[in-house]
Design a binder for these strands. Structure first.
Lengths: 236, 236
DNA sequence: TGCGCAATATATGTATACAATCTATAAGTT
DNA sequence: AACTTATAGATTGTATACATATATTGCGCA
């Protein structure tokens, strides 16, 4: 299996040695929906699992909180982040602003090696789906978007998109409609074709509608606060 | 003096108690160019200055590195970041992508209190210039941009812009042309007028050209590595 | 005199210990 | 029986101590 699709490349070398591994492990688990939003990430628990001191764990959790994958509450602990509906909308508005333009740049600068990388991503995504590993498929589909932004050769914007994709994974975990099928396969294939033709305009349009499709598959209607309703139910 | 222009509002509550103060102090110093790019930020030194343990200092430095204000090198220490020319271009390309659209949104949603906040910012900036405190004026002028993005009511994008403005301060410290005058005053005044009229289109155009003007006042030509030239000079 | 190597000193990386804060359980009161 | 309060347990925040890596300085040698 292609190595580049397995190993998430972290642009930021900001996290020191031992923490880096923990950051990657937790990131993958969150992206694959094995850690669901709201899960408590206790420091002692993690230091036992990874056989390191709490110092290292805390460093990793701080890093993840800066990527907005983890929420730190003072004297309370670390939890997998739970984006609100409002934040969900904002994330996809930001993606709609950044990604179509980025896809255009990527198409215009497309090279043969970059094309092969994207093909490998899609095929890995396809494999994961066939093997009934939807979590892995989801993570790979996010990496497809990140890879495009890297090809566009705008490190700064690529960093933003990486954060948005990460947050999107949490949003999908929370708000995905069960009945709507996840068929990113077609959209990603179509994008790949546009990239092959180095057709920037087409790539931009395809990315725009792809993002619209994703948002359409989310259920972002406001719901009454679950705390209140829970209390109301139990008081009877 | 207006309180809101003095206290930088940090959107991320991710940094725990004692570190937060250090992050703010270092951020301000960097934004005001009192700490220049490349300056070493030793942990012992900082823990002496702020009377806290290295643990707290490290937490603050990690936070600053995630904001890309500080660069951490493993086993080497923390340094005020030194964006390259390439990074400088990317930062302003990203700003050109985000800020004009954001200015339009802000204009369309402008409220009276928001207008007054912006007026206070501009007047504080003006005061700082008259008092010959160019560092402070620069920091306030950056906060003007951040405030606009907050008014636009897009927290996610506002966070990105905050990072870009922070990085711009470092870029200006490194690449500003001495002979070009810093006259953001006019641009900011013109923007304020557009906001008063709630003229989104005009605000978008003004912001676009404002950013072009800033880039034009930078010297982003490639120069030979300063190490090499230093060696060459001293060897004579 | 100039270069290279080694030893020492300084600074960062990690682990552990202690302090402060919060949560949960249980007792007591109305 | 429900609510409040107190106490105990557990978890996080901070400080300190030890381990490890790097930078500098001094010595030896060519």
């Amino acid at each position: 299996m292609n190595h580049s699709t397995e190993t998430p490349v972290f642009t930021q070398t900001t996290v020191s040695g031992a923490s880096a591994g923990i950051v990657v492990a937790l990131s993958q688990a969150i992206h694959e929906h094995r850690l669901v939003p709201g899960t408590k990430l206790g420091e002692d628990e993690l230091s036992d699992i990874f056989n390191v001191s709490r110092t290292v764990v805390r460093s990793a959790l701080q890093a993840l909180s800066h990527e907005e994958l983890v929420e730190l509450r003072r004297n309370r602990g670390a939890f997998v982040a739970k984006p609100t509906i409002r934040e969900a909308r904002e994330v996809f508005e930001a993606r709609a602003l950044l990604e179509p333009r980025t896809a255009r740049s990527a198409a215009e600068r497309m090279t043969e090696p970059a094309l092969r990388t994207l093909e490998a991503h899609i095929s890995a995504e396809h494999d994961a789906l066939e093997r009934a590993e939807p979590g892995k498929a989801l993570r790979l589909s996010g990496q497809f978007h990140i890879e495009i932004s890297r090809i566009a050769d705008q490190t700064t914007i690529a960093g933003f998109i990486e954060r948005l994709v990460a947050r999107s994974s949490l949003i999908i975990a929370l708000y995905w409609k069960r009945h709507s099928a996840l068929c990113e396969k077609h959209a990603h294939h179509a994008l790949l074709e546009a990239f092959r033709r180095r057709d920037g305009e087409d790539a931009e349009d395809l990315m725009k509608s792809h993002l619209v499709d994703i948002v359409a598959a989310l259920d972002l209607r406001e719901v009454p606060n679950s705390d209140v309703s829970l209390k109301a139910i139990l008081s009877r």
